[in-house]
Design a protein around this nucleic acid. Structure first.
Lengths: 342, 342
DNA sequence: GTGAAAGCGCTAACAT
DNA sequence: ATGTTAGCGCTTTCAC
């Protein structure tokens, strides 16, 4: 701590130490420092120890920005979340974050509220040379899809990917099978006058969930259900439920294409129409978010297992070798709960 | 598309075009390209147009990694979320993401489930030379706090920052005032036997919310409330509520130090103890998450305004000039709802 | 096993 | 206003 000691740890707000600084202190070349921090590099144990020692006293941390520049890849995965208030996405994001960090990968996150394509967000992500882009409930223009393809950036759509898209991998739950399973369950429970609160007309998850549902009904010789759109949102579902329950021939069960909408439907039916959920009105959701199992709702739903999904997605991102595009369907299971018990 | 055309757009998975490529095509120097993409740089309009034109045909996007390397700052803000399932943090994250992108800043996100310090996550973030680290419901060791300070990386604790920490800025709701306001409200409503489900013993938010609450009671000459810890988690609150409601002298109102716990308390009281919320048991939360206003809960709570909070945090991050550490208290307001109506 | 040297793609003086 | 040059902090040949 002597005054003349200009290059010691005295002053605040120093630039972080570089590999050069460490090299000088350890008495080795800067390249040796690099090797010490590169797993599997050819370096003598003694040298590495010297380097680590010096690094420790200096508080050195390799600059990943510089590494990224050389390698041409950043170790960063871009994520764009539309509908960021939906707890399910939050859960997947958390799971992915944890999984990816085990692969030394990191998540740069953007939100894209509204239904416009996530082009600006993806544009930004590409500037960071992200290794993959995950679109959660977000869409992308054909133009940008093409650019990602040209630059070899895998695009992974999740749960509500754009309807048609080349070069877009997709991980989804078993929308088709789930829809059918739900229809089967409702019929088993004795519901006969079925309605659907659909997501968005343009979302493939919406399409598939409804297709599975409707197809099963058709196979049983039943007419297609009444349908309203809720846009996967609580507010949309509130309106839709009011409309459905105000009809002269009221449905006795409603299939909502995600849990967010189903929870809203339950509340509207219960508090605005005074209906007993289950007995007087069956309600089913999709995804199995945490709140679905809360006793206030006890919502029957078809699970989209967070762990399985995030594992699939992580694998797509981490396995550089994977050939794109890939389509993965993660099976779920029906969670029969009180909201469909008569 | 002629075969010999080796450097055209034919092959897949090309490396992205560099400023050099653009310069060559536009017939200018590489520096000119840089200037064209630097707002306020001195460049002729004609030149810039040429550059943009070339950039467009090549699909050029400036490499932010390279820029970061030079500038010594990355434009990246690190966020560590403990308790990532709490909707409030999700809301703040989304708001921050949107706000920061207007400042050309980006969020690198990590989760830190569990109560261990977020040291590993912050360590990673520092390697990316993040410009600030935001700790949401996460703690940090003194060692790493010191390192951040040395490197001039602002640390911003949010909502549940570590108890004592130099160099840690903090943005919080008005925990003290909110706690007092809640106590006042409960007394006004005629509740007399009060209990608290606290967060964590070591969390300052927990401390302050409780201090405000208890102090007000003391001022009114009342004895301190019974207390259980819920660790800010639903599961913890379920246990705590059972304990409180099983006491021989049951409390007639419970103040839960966040909404997650309050929602759980309502359900336990209602479904396990058959109590009518409001009339037989008052329940209050803190934060005003979205679910609090759902009719199933209609939870009285003290709001922590998401927009105001994220604006404050964003300002701390974006205003490089701010002197650290800073402490900002964002005022909220009592949302009196049905859960405390007798 | 180790050091010297050449970049990765860009920005920032410095000339002109 | 523009080109030239020198790096930012690291990885990676390439000699030794």
């Amino acid at each position: 701590m002597r005054p003349g000691d200009s290059k010691t740890v005295m002053s605040k707000r120093q630039p972080p130490p570089s590999a050069h600084d460490v090299a000088r202190l350890a008495g080795v070349s800067q390249a040796a420092v690099s090797r010490a921090f590169t797993p599997g590099a050819s370096i003598a144990t003694a040298t590495r120890d010297k380097v680590f020692e010096a690094a420790r006293t200096l508080g050195y941390r390799p600059n990943l920005i510089a590494r990224s520049l050389i390698k041409g890849k950043s170790g960063i995965v871009g994520v764009v979340i539309g509908n960021s208030r939906y707890p399910f996405f939050q859960a997947v994001l958390a799971a992915m974050s944890e999984r990816l960090s085990r692969h030394a990968k990191h998540i740069l996150i953007y939100t894209a509220e509204g239904s416009a394509p996530a082009d600006p967000q993806v544009e930004e992500l590409l500037k960071f040379r992200v290794e993959a882009v995950l679109l959660m409930s977000a869409t992308l223009s054909a133009k940008l899809t093409g650019q990602c393809q040209r630059e070899g950036v895998p695009l992974i759509g999740f749960t509500h990917p754009p309807k048609v898209a080349p070069w877009l991998s997709a991980v989804t739950g078993d929308d088709l099978g789930g829809g059918a399973r739900i229809a089967e369950h409702l019929l088993q429970q004795g519901y006969r006058s079925l309605a659907v609160i659909a997501g968005r007309p343009d979302a493939s998850a919406s399409y598939a969930r409804e297709a599975g549902f409707t197809r099963y009904l058709a196979e049983q010789g039943l007419t297609p259900p009444v349908r309203e759109f809720g846009h996967f949102r609580r507010e949309g579902a509130i309106e839709a439920t009011r409309t459905l329950l105000s009809r002269t021939s009221r449905p006795d069960a409603i299939f909502c294409e995600n849990d967010d909408m189903a929870l809203a439907a339950i509340e509207v039916a219960r508090f605005e129409f005074g209906l007993v959920i289950g007995r007087e009105l069956g309600v089913v959701g999709f995804d199995d978010v945490e709140q679905a199992s809360w006793p206030s709702f006890d919502l029957t739903t078809y699970s989209l297992p967070v762990e399985a999904v995030s594992e699939r997605v992580t694998a797509l991102v981490a396995d550089a070798e994977a050939t794109f595009p890939v389509t993965a369907v993660v099976p779920g299971e029906l969670k029969a709960r009180g909201s469909t018990r008569r």
